[in-house]
Structure formats: C-alpha cells, structure tokens
C-alpha cells in the first residue's frame, strides 16, 4: 500500500519534472510567457490516447504525440510570436478556451465531455512504468541541460533579455522564438503522452487553468532559467501538496485546500522571492 502510493507519487513527480522544465525553456530561458503551455500537454495526451486506442503501438504513439504537438506549437508560434509581449500572453491564454471548446465538441474523435477511458498502458506494472518514465525524464533533462548551455540556448536568453539587441547582432529572433516554442511543446507532448498512459483516461478537464496554475507554481518556485531549479520546484511542491493530505480532515476539501495553498505560495514568491529557489532571472 505504502509502496503503491510511493510509486504513483514518484511517477507523477517525474512527469511533472518534464512538463515544468519544458515550460522553463520557453518562459524562463526565452521570455515567452506561453500561458497555454498546458494546452500542449493536453494535445500530447489526446494524441497518444487516440492513436493507441486505434491500435497503434505505444512507442509510435509517444513519438508522434511529441511531433504532432510540436507541429501545432510551431504553427501557433509562427503566427503569435510576432505579437508584442502583452498580446502574446493574451492569445496563448485564449488557446486554453479554444482547446476546451474543441475537445468538448469534436465528439467523434474525443467523445466530448465523456472523455476517453480504457487507454492502454505502456507497461502494465507500475513500478516498471515508473522506471521507464524515469529513463525518459533523464533523456529529456540531459537534452535540456545541453540545450541551455549551447549557443542556441544562449541566443534564447539573449532574446529574453533584449530582443532588439539580439537582432542587431544578426540573430533572426523570429526563428529562434518559434524554435523555442517548438522544442518546449515537443516535450510537453511527450509528458502528456506519459501522463495519459499512466492515468489511462483523458477528458477536457486536462486543459483546465487549475492544472496550469500548479505547473506555473512549480516553475516559479524552482526559479526561471534554471533546469535544476525546476526539478527542485516540482519535488518540493509535490511533497508539500501531499503533506496537506494529512492536515486536511474533510476529504471533500483536500482538493480545493491543496490548490489554494499552492496558489498562496505562488503569490508569496511573486512578491518576496521573484527568483524562486534557484532562478537566474526575476519573474
């Protein structure tokens, strides 16, 4: 029982580490405040669910979930990264409501509000699945560390600090911003796929802003522009959030109370510690 709990808790943490650090690539490193980042997690989840339900082997589905999600990400970025700061945030926030509307209404594909049950697992045994997600996570993190140290990663950060300066140094900032979103949404898609094969169910609530706020809290708490920060942010807040289970007596209240506590933490960080635990830049 305790081990079951520990295995499922660890699996969630591992998947959250992938999604939060992928969010850090666009938000923390490139300064693109993509408020619709979790939309891409949802797209990855739906893609992988639909493909495996139609009989595709999981490994194809996993890769295709990443590729398809990043294709959508690239297309959206190509239109929106030209918009000035405020407007980019507005449009990406709007994606959330578009995604909810489409997943509710495209019944033939998504079964609407009923959701898609019975999604086949990648690995039946939860412990082995945890090891598998861990392996994927290590590969993702290795890539993130490499990327952020690479010249491309430095250019992302230069654009975040001063886009005009990056462009007069001969960098095609439009291309790099689209690239940043493409990369970050690819990993959001992979995380979505891993998630959906673990909980074996998906419905439009995956796009809810509530979920996004949790991910955002983990990112900001860990600190922008630090991959290690993201790992620490996820682990520490996941533990805090689980610990609340023992504080709150009424089971109906666990959800909202947990949620509200995380949001309070986020507000406190915004005011008193804008660099989070290990951040390189202020929120």
């Amino acid at each position: 029982m305790i081990t079951d709990f520990f295995i499922s808790f660890s699996t969630y943490v591992i998947i959250y580490i992938i999604i939060v650090s992928s969010f850090n690539i666009s938000f923390g490193f490139t300064g693109l405040v993509n408020l619709g980042h979790m939309v891409f997690f949802g797209i990855g989840a739906y893609t992988s669910a639909i493909l495996t339900l139609h009989g595709m082997p999981w490994y194809f589905a996993l890769i295709l979930a990443g590729l398809f999600t990043s294709l959508i990400g690239a297309a959206i970025a190509a239109i929106t990264v030209r918009l000035k700061g405020d407007y980019f945030q507005i449009v990406t926030l709007g994606l959330v409501f578009i995604a909810i509307a489409i997943s509710r209404n495209w019944i033939s594909l998504t079964r609407g509000a009923l959701g898609l049950p019975g999604i086949p697992p990648i690995i039946k045994d939860n412990f082995n699945y945890m090891l598998f997600t861990f392996l994927v996570c290590v590969i993702c993190l290795a890539f993130f560390y490499w990327l952020t140290k690479s010249e491309t990663g430095k250019i992302f950060q230069a654009i975040r600090d001063d886009e005009t300066a990056a462009s007069i140094l001969g960098k095609n900032t439009y291309f790099y911003k689209v690239l940043s979103i493409t990369i970050s949404t690819f990993f959001a898609g992979i995380a979505g796929s891993l998630f959906v094969h673990f909980i074996k169910f998906v419905d439009p609530s995956i796009f809810d802003l509530d979920f996004f706020v949790i991910i955002l809290t983990m990112l900001v708490a860990g600190g922008l522009a630090s991959i290690t920060g993201s790992i620490i942010g996820v682990v520490s807040l996941a533990i805090t959030s689980e610990a609340l289970r023992f504080v709150v007596v009424n089971p109906e209240l666990i959800g909202p109370v947990r949620h509200m506590s995380l949001m309070l933490i986020l507000i406190l960080i915004l005011i008193y510690r804008p660099r989070g635990i290990l951040g390189k830049v202020n929120v």
């Binding site: 001063d162 990056a166 140094l169 522009a225 390189k280």
Partner: peptide, 27 residues
C-alpha cells in the same frame, strides 16, 4: 530585417545600453 542588415555588416550600439543583463560578459 535588422538581423540581415547586421549580417551584411552593420554593427551598432544604443543611446541607452542594451546589454543582455542576465548573461555573463562571455555570453
């Protein structure tokens, strides 16, 4: 576009400095 002009060989500074403030001198 600015980046192509830069690649064609014009380099410049600004009246109010535009350094990448969170990056090291090296970067």
């Amino acid at each position: 576009p600015a980046y192509k002009i830069a690649q064609s060989g014009i380099s410049r500074t600004f009246q109010i400095t535009k350094v990448f403030k969170n990056l090291t001198i090296r970067d």
